[in-house]
Write a protein that binds this DNA or RNA. Sequence first.
DNA 1: GTCTGACTTAGACGTTTATCTAATTGTCAT
DNA 2: ATGACAATTAGATAAACGTCTAAGTCAGAC
Lengths: 97, 97
Amino acid sequence: MTSARETKLTDKQFALIARALAEPRRFQILEQIGKCEASLPCAAVLEKHEVSAATLSHHLKELETAGLIEVTRTGKCMSMAVNRDILRAYLGRLSKI
Amino acid sequence: MTSARETKLTDKQFALIARALAEPRRFQILEQIGKCEASLPCAAVLEKHEVSAATLSHHLKELETAGLIEVTRTGKCMSMAVNRDILRAYLGRLSKI
DNA sequence: GTCTGACTTAGACGTTTATCTAATTGTCAT
DNA sequence: ATGACAATTAGATAAACGTCTAAGTCAGAC
């Protein structure tokens, strides 16, 4: 939708996002996904980070559960893109402090 | 200073802030401190959160280490205020994703 | 079908974290 | 100094977390 209306986060969602961002490696992964305009394939992330596929899978799931990325699967491969609505909502809540 | 110039965060500082915000109770404490225009005394925080003084002390130190709050001590008591420069810097970095 | 390649799940291991109680430090008032 | 109060530190404990290896699933190519 990318609606103009600001997405509203529950406390639970907010906590999930905060936790997801709190792990440096996970944050780097998110940054990398964000740098790619289109969707980024998983293998490209693996190349950049010295981490096992299992660990990467774990981090991606955390990011997805938090709503920070959206995952699309085409055949064997997956691609990710940052969900900027959610990120904006997180920033919005933080900036109210 | 509350300079107009945006405060720059190192990766380490950024990680500290992210971690500090990731704990729901700690975030609530920060919100409470932020709501008070002036500085908030410690006892006022204790009243609002069902947590031991030791735990509160621990959380406040985390927030202070992250730079999110500034602590002033007058006699027995301490007061805290949100450091909005740091918060702004954190938001700034996040919004670049 | 069988193989290969991309991801996931399960289980284990060590580290970090939030929390507590108890003891300590430090400051003010008497 | 003695007592009362505010906050910190120390030490313990249980839960959560990041990471790995090994095994599993599942889609496409042959």
